[in-house]
Design a protein around this nucleic acid. Structure first.
Lengths: 237, 237
DNA sequence: GAGTGGTCTAGACCACCGG
DNA sequence: CGGTGGTCTAGACCACTCA
């Protein structure tokens, strides 16, 4: 087990347990290095992690302080999320209408986005997801077939992400997302109960495995009044 | 200047210039350390930054590769950005039309967002920012007057963020942002050359100092076809 | 001035990948 | 096996803050 991770986990749990109270100073890096019997660089790396998580903030000459992070973790956040809608909206009834589902070959744009060749097949899924019976989001999704294998309509009607994570065991490493507004398309009008003049929020994303291989490209469209994305960002020094 | 930052900037510019092509291997860390005449740890820290920016991807035993999509977002605004439009759009002519500017007391919602009391004054700025003479974004901004002091119309016509960072010396610690689509308002129609049916992208944000104190709340509105936001998110272990 | 965190070094060992 | 990146060390110097 990595030392800096062990130390970060230990300090984090002490913060959560209240052993290091909000606004309190942590022991300095030299003391922590002695305590954990590691070098100071390793302690610093552990604290870097906590700082990136927004638990702690540091200032030269002043020490390292526990942040009252009640501010930051008001979890209505969506922008950085990999649980999928099913987990996000638990407690509500989510159903999926599959409009189209097939296997095809990617055009050039998609080849670039997913870093695949022209003859590497992709699944194409067009579905509408309903929350409590009402249309909520329309998604156009492409999965690299060799990675997300054996996709079936039965899976699509439930949670794709549960299947990807639990059954395939694929580990998500990150995502690239682009958010913009758009005018309603014909599909939007038909499936999201839009007028032609209704603004739509679209999120494009490419999702990567831990090893950097992309496995999904999707566009998700919502009516302007049903969804917003939040981002909490803490600058590292 | 910090060595690892200089190196990261240098490599980034070489990627953008095509000197390191997409999918190409970077020189290994030992070679880079020799070339920049620094230790390998310092090179690694520089590459850490590029990896966090999503420009580069590494694997043990395989080297460091430039990601194919490293360049696909050059024209979008980063969702995580604090340079302000003036720095973001350098090379273009930015002018600011001030529509309204005054000092006022915050309503209850604003008191909560900025964590201030009812009798702590705020500056209110309503301005339209033009890029190359054409209206680009309309902003409604509130600054905590005790933190962003001595704001004047002359400053507003240029870059507020330059003033905040260089003159006041306020250190930005992070931001909370919400992105959503909206229908055009009367102001949008008047100042952004919108029709009543034009979709608008709005970004609300609260910007915090390093010590956690909020100093700005703003809403920025763009026509749907003039701006999009991108987020690169890499999950840490 | 004493103490803090930030950077940097020169070297070491390890885990992983390819041939 | 050789070469890659990941981790870790022991120590050094610097920038900053506070008394």
């Amino acid at each position: 087990m990595l030392k800096y991770k062990v130390i970060a986990d230990d300090i984090r749990s002490k913060i959560q347990a209240g052993e290091y109270a909000a606004e309190a100073l942590l022991p300095d890096q030299v003391a922590l290095a002695l305590h954990y019997e590691v070098s100071r660089m390793t302690v610093k790396k552990a604290i870097d992690i906590l700082a990136m998580e927004g638990l702690v903030y540091r200032k030269r000459g002043m020490g390292t302080r526990v942040l009252k992070n009640a501010l930051w973790n008001q979890n209505d956040s969506l922008a950085l999320d990999y649980q999928g809608l099913t987990a996000q909206m638990k407690g509500t009834a989510i159903t999926n209408d599959i409009i189209e589902f097939n296997i095809q070959f990617p055009d050039e744009a998609l080849q670039n986005l997913l870093m695949i060749g022209a003859n590497e097949a992709v699944y194409y899924v067009h579905r509408v997801r309903n929350v409590d019976g009402k249309p909520y989001v329309m998604e156009y999704t492409y999965f690299v077939a060799s990675l997300v294998h054996d996709l079936t309509p039965a899976i699509l009607e439930q949670s794709i992400y549960d299947y990807i994570k639990a059954d395939i065991g694929l580990v998500i490493g990150g995502a690239y997302r682009k958010i913009h507004a758009d005018v309603a398309s014909d599909d939007d009008c038909q499936y999201l109960a839009c007028e032609a003049t209704t603004p739509v929020l679209e999120v494009e994303q490419v999702v990567y495995q831990k090893n950097g291989t992309p496995f999904e490209y999707s566009r998700s469209r919502n009516r302007f009044d049903t969804r917003s994305y939040t981002i909490t960002d803490i600058i590292k020094d």
